[in-house]
Every structure is written in C-alpha cells, then in structure tokens.
Design a protein around this nucleic acid. Structure first.
Lengths: 345, 345
DNA sequence: TTGTAGGCGTTATCAG
DNA sequence: CTGATAACGCCTACAA
C-alpha cells in the first residue's frame, strides 16, 4: 500500500502538501501540485478510506435501512441512491433491519461511526425508527412520510396527486363509477404503511367532491383473496366502469381474469395501476396503463438530500414530493354508454 | 462519543484490557471482564468502526459490484447477501459500476481500503472485471461463472441441471416436441452473459440424447419481437407441445397471448419458465409453472464464501451450484394426444 | 505557500 | 492475566 508519506517523499514535499492537493483544501503552487500529482500517478497512490474517515470523523458512508419485507420493487430506488451517493464521493451500505432490532441497532450504526447518515424506507405513519434516529441525533432522510413532519427531511411519492390524476384522467373519458383496490396490510408488519391510507383518503375526497361513486376494496396479500377480487367487485360494485389499483398482484389478476367473466378490458372496464413497476405492467396483455412510481428520481433525491444535510448541517428542510407519471397502456378507454350490472359468470 | 479510554478509566483497567474483552482476543479474569462490561454498558460505548478498520487493516466491508442494467430481480439476492454479511459482522456496500469505469475503479476500491473483498454479479463468460480483480489480488467471489474457473470462488445457478429437470419433467408427461425461448442479448452489454448460453447448450444435448425435437428461439428485449413470438413459434415449430422459457417477458406474453390464438394453456400447450421471479409467475392467470431461482440462497452463499475467504485466506475453492426448484403452477399438462400444426389466427 | 506535529480511536506487540 | 506504547494513515491547526 502506498501512503501519503511515500508520495510526499517522492515529490519532495511534506505530507501536508500532499493532503492539500489531494483534498483541494489549501492553495498550492501549480508546480508543486504538478509534482505531487505525478508522484501520485507514478506510485499509484489511493488515499486510505479508513484513515481519512478516522482523522476527519466522517465515514462518507450512507446507510440504507430497509426491512426484510421485500414485496416491492425497490430496485430502481436503491440503484439510484447508490449511484448518486457514489457521484458525490459517498458509498451506500445496505442495512437490513428486523423490527425487533430497531431500538438497539439504529443508533449504534451512527455511534459506531459506520455511517454518517441514514436513509429510511418503507416509513410508517408512526415509526419507532424515526424516534430513535432523532434521539441519536443521526442525520437522516425518509423515503416516505411519518404523520409528524416538523423539521424532517423526506422525499416521497405524491400519492395524493397521483390519485387525483388517476380519477381526473378517467373522469375526462366519462367515467363516474370507480373502484379503488388497495393492499390490506392490517395484519402485517407494514400495518401503518402510509401510501394506501393516503390514497384512500384522497380517493374518497375527490370522489365526494366531484359527486362520483367510489367503492374501496382492501385486499390482503393472499392468493385466494386476490383471485376472488374480480367477482367481488362485480358483485359489490357492479356499476364500476373503472378500477384504480394500488395492489400489483390484484391488478394483474384483474386484467387476466376479467375477460374470463365476459368483461372486456378496456371496452367494458378500464383499469389503471398506481406505483407499479412499469416493467411488469408492460408485460401484461393488454398492457396495463399505469401511473409509474418515480423510483429512480426518489432514490437520487433521497441520497442527495442526505448528503446536503451532512455537508451543510444547517440548510432548509428538504420535503420533496414526486408524482407518478402516466404510462399509457391498453387498459383504459371510455366507459360503455349504457352498461349497468354485469353478472358474474 | 465514548472511547475505549473512557471505558478503561471507568473500569479502572488499561485500554488494552478493554480491547481484549471487546474483541475476545485474550483471556481476562471473569471479574475484570465483568467490570469492563458494566463500564461499557454504563457509558454506552461502541467501538469505532473506522478506528478499528485502520488499526486492524480490515474494513469489514464487502463490496457488491453490479452493473446498471437492471432488468432482473436481484432483490432476494442482494438482501440475502446483506443479511448474511451483517450476521458475520460485515456490511455490504453497493458499488454500481459502468462498464467504462471497470479498469480503474475496481482495483482502487480495494487499494483504498474501502472494502475487504468483492462480490461480482452478472458475470460474463469472459469478464474483464475478473481479470482486474485478480491483478489487484482482491479477494472476490463471483455470482455466476466465467469460462475459466481455475481457483476461482463462485456460486451460481445450476442452469444445466435446471434445464435438464425441465425437459425431463415435461418428457415424463409425454412431451416430445419442445421449444426453448431465450433472451437474445447479442446486441447488449450482456452479450457474453452465460446463462442463456449454458441453457441452450444443455437443452440441445438433452434433446439430442433422448431423441426429441427441439427448437430454439432467441428473442431480444424489444416489445415487437416479444409480441411476435407466439406466432413465430406456431409457424416455425408447429409441433411444439411444450415451451421452456428463460425470458420473463416472453413467458408472460405467451401465457396471455396463446389463448387468443385458440390455443389453451396447458391443454394444448405447456409452458414453464426457468429462473423467473416466482412473485411474478404466480400472478399470471393461469399461474406459470416455474423453476425458481434460488436467489436468497445464492446471496447468502456468496457472502459467506467471501467472508470465509477473507478470514481463512487459504481454504479450498468454493464452487457452489444451486439448481432451481420447481414451483408448480397451472401451465403444464400432458400433451394432446393427436395435435399437429395449429394455424395462427 | 509549505512544513511540523499532535491527534483521531483502535489494534497489537512486548514486557511485566 | 494486565499494562505501556508504538503503529495504522490521514487531517489540520499552528508555525515558519
């Protein structure tokens, strides 16, 4: 391993001069700088990450804490965060965390100096991890939102706006009778997960405001309930002409099952999904129209917000909301003029 | 921040003694140990990661290098690797790497002491990154296999065996006429990606050995080609009664398109997919029968192999192959006794 | 503009 | 079994 001292010797300067040019922290004459640079090049010097971290008290590591639930598509998000981090000279470590370790592990991560800051995903409305992070005075950025948001940095999907867009886009085509499909997380560790709650709330508000009809279906993550959904909607909300779904599995099931009930998509029923991975939506036949989650942008925004916080401790609170963007598919059309109840097969 | 020295003072021992109990590196009298432990507890001491790394010359970090291609489902794999790492006192950092940075970045990662070892995924048959890693004498484990494997640690899916299983399972039901669908990566950065190559080779061998008929279809990752696949198979390999697919998008397209051609799945055509994310397979209607990739096991095995290599530099080469496991769906059945060509719609 | 020297918090070697 | 003490490689006042 090549050390700074060796570079200094080779360039016939002192070790601090090397440090100055490496970190660009103090002015150095062009000639000296050049000599140093050449020495660095000649010797193949790399400044030691750990020594730097120790001396500067900054690890240049961001920890991404995520639960091991893993049903969703966090891929774009994680990649984007890692990429952005690296572009800024940071690295991203994955910190899988079971719910029962939260209290102990989360503070120690920072106290041990393993990371400078924390990215927290799958945030719940009331989230113990946030409490712990504040207690530990750890710099952090949420991906998602807690209920209480005073002075908290976060980036999140704008579910409110996305839901509104979905209803409005469909209304523009003439739809008046909606069904909303959500994941029922009530019996899972994600019980307090905000997106379905926010979406439902917004849905009800928009529906009420515009005088539409809207039914809400909460569907757990179990095969039987998912399979039964199609018939359930046809039975319990027979007037439905448009389904808005935030339940990936249910969306797919609907698209592939409705035709078997004699209901054509989109002629007899429109379907849109919110925040689904487009990769999957596009694979369906017909391709699902979806409001795509801005995963990549969120990941980047989160990492950059955290770095900004780390580098300028004072800055204003970052509270970024990004709406989903419409990805046209083939599951949306105008409602049939005169369709009423359609009997299940 | 609480330091070892403070703990030592509090426990009225020397700093080295604290180190001995913290690291369990030398025998200490139960009483002294107890005093130290209590001091640690009382002060809330955490040993500083960076100082330890510097002094011990071991960062306890594993770097997961992955390309930004991202079409696959690496989630289980990454989570498992991160989890296993943490269980062993390591952490996993994500190191996104564009192909043009390979030569410079890969060595510096180790030389800078940012990580002790490297996990490399999406390995190609000839992979420059492997060359670089060897040059840098960086400890590494592949997820995947290069052509040359002497003394190289790797874990990989046993595509050969998985393919064989698929053909044999189908043959047992009476199938004799197969089509194999693969991703055509020839124009992509993954051109030398081994799985499709190994699978094709095995497929041809098994087919030949057992005297079956088999056609191979290479399908790029573009919508038109994927949509056209169904008709292409019906046209070019009309006798096919069973399709084996290692192309996720194509698998989905086949399942949802064949019925529109008057071909029922599985009565008229069986379909199995290899190495697809089960999560998706199960969403289809009918649910895809699939040979599921052991993502979680691979991730864990890879991390543990690397750690073993780091801790006992000498150990034997780890070369682990894990076959996919059958996940029954509803897309496989016996072939129709007397089906011949079926005309495209 | 450049150099000197004292940490940063641990580990690890050697005495005792 | 316990304690000094010298690294580890770099950063950063402070001095020159």
């Amino acid at each position: 391993m090549v050390t700074m001292q060796q570079v200094a010797d080779h360039a016939r300067v002192s070790i601090s001069t090397v440090s100055f040019v490496v970190n660009d922290t103090k002015p150095v004459t062009p000639e000296t700088r050049e000599r140093v640079l050449q020495a660095i090049d000649a010797l193949g010097y790399r400044r030691n990450t750990m020594a730097r971290a120790l001396a500067s008290r900054r690890s240049h590591v961001l920890a991404l804490i995520y639960p091991l639930i893993e049903q969703r598509n966090h891929h774009a998000f994680v990649s984007a965060a890692a990429t952005a981090a690296r572009e800024h000279g940071y690295s991203l470590v994955l910190w899988p965390l079971h719910s029962d370790e939260v209290s102990t592990e989360i503070a120690s991560l920072i106290q041990a100096g393993s990371a400078d800051g924390v990215l927290l995903m799958e945030v719940q409305l009331e989230d113990e991890r946030v409490t712990r992070l504040r207690e530990a005075e750890a710099p952090f950025v949420l991906i998602g939102r807690t209920r209480e948001l005073d002075g908290i940095d976060y980036v999140d999907i704008d579910f409110e706006r996305s839901t509104e867009m979905a209803v409005n886009d469909l209304a523009r085509l003439g739809h008046r009778d909606f069904s909303l499909v959500l994941e029922d997380l009530s019996e899972t560790p994600l019980a307090g997960y905000a997106p379905p709650l926010r979406t439902e709330e917004t849905f009800r508000a928009v529906i009420a405001e515009r005088g539409f009809n809207g039914e809400v279906f909460r569907v757990p993550h179990r095969a039987p309930e998912i399979s039964a959904l199609t018939d359930r909607i046809l039975r319990e909300a027979p007037r439905t002409t448009a389904i808005i779904s935030m339940h990936d599995e249910a969306s797919l099931a609907l698209v592939s099952t409705l035709p078997h009930r004699g209901i054509r998509v989109p002629q007899d029923m429109s379907i849109v999904t919110i925040a689904m991975s487009t990769a999957i939506a596009e694979l369906m036949n017909p391709a699902l129209t979806s409001y795509e989650a801005p995963g990549w942008e969120l990941g980047r925004a989160a990492a950059e917000a955290l770095i900004a916080r780390l580098e300028g401790r004072d800055g204003p609170t970052v509270q970024t909301l990004l709406a989903c963007s419409l990805r046209e598919g083939q599951t949306v059309g105008a409602p049939r003029a005169s369709r009423s109840a359609t009997a299940p097969a």
